[in-house]
Nucleic acid binder design. Structure first.
Lengths: 124, 124
DNA sequence: ATCTTTGCAAAACCTTTGCACTGCG
DNA sequence: CGCAGTGCAAAGGTTTTGCAAAGAT
């Protein structure tokens, strides 16, 4: 990640324009708007470099391709809509998490994934 | 899932013998002890059928192959040890989960994954 | 005997990698 | 210019699928 390229600028722009976790494929499609010739390999390589740099963090959705979001976001969790498959940020956190770990275990972190239907998909 | 076959019996036996979430590959290797000729495709097909039947449920560990466990287990969560990579069941649940979903969203389920070090790996 | 289930191999995916070319610094 | 970065295509790994043979009822 030593140089600024059109491809990397486009990828960062996509994250700025869409404030939600994005998959490599989504990222590729959206970045094509800026740089039509961008290859999927570049997207994967850039994602990996950005994760290694601590700029992005993976968001894992069970049974789905991984998504990525900016790491600078404060601690939060996610909501996965079963209707549109989109993942939304949830800026809240259960308060009694520390009590869940078995005694003797050292708890270092946690992830909460909510499932259901988003506002738009609730009717359908 | 209409017929009882040696392959399916072997797969169920593996789940009985190992009380922890198992990956398709683990399942395949372990089932070979009973039915050496069992193919990986059969393992995948059987897993899928058992999940559809509600007999198994997937346990997703970020960045790792999926694992499966019996669905009859009461609602619970998981602890992923960063030392030994094992996944443990956690029979506790945050109480204020319902309050986390954004308003307007319909919450249908949730998953909690804890990270840290298990009792045995805490020292190392 | 019928019709589901199996094993094999090929196909379908997703992600990574090799290599020559491009273009940032 | 030199070398990081790119695009393409091929390789790697995992999961799915087509089909003829096996086997459960």
């Amino acid at each position: 990640m030593e140089r600024t390229t059109r491809q990397r600028t486009a990828i960062r722009a996509v994250f700025d324009a869409h404030a939600r976790p994005l998959s490599p494929t989504e990222l590729h499609e959206l970045a094509k708007a800026d740089v039509p010739t961008i290859g999927i390999a570049t997207v994967y390589r850039t994602i990996k470099a950005m994760v290694d740099d601590g700029e992005l963090q993976p968001v894992d959705v069970p049974g789905e391709p991984p998504r990525y979001e900016r790491a600078e976001l404060a601690h939060h969790h996610h909501f996965h809509c079963r209707g549109c498959d989109k993942v939304f940020d949830v800026h809240a956190c259960p308060r009694d998490i520390e009590k869940l770990a078995p005694s003797g275990f050292r708890l270092e972190g946690h992830a909460v994934m909510l499932f259901g239907r988003c506002d738009g998909c609730r009717a359908a």
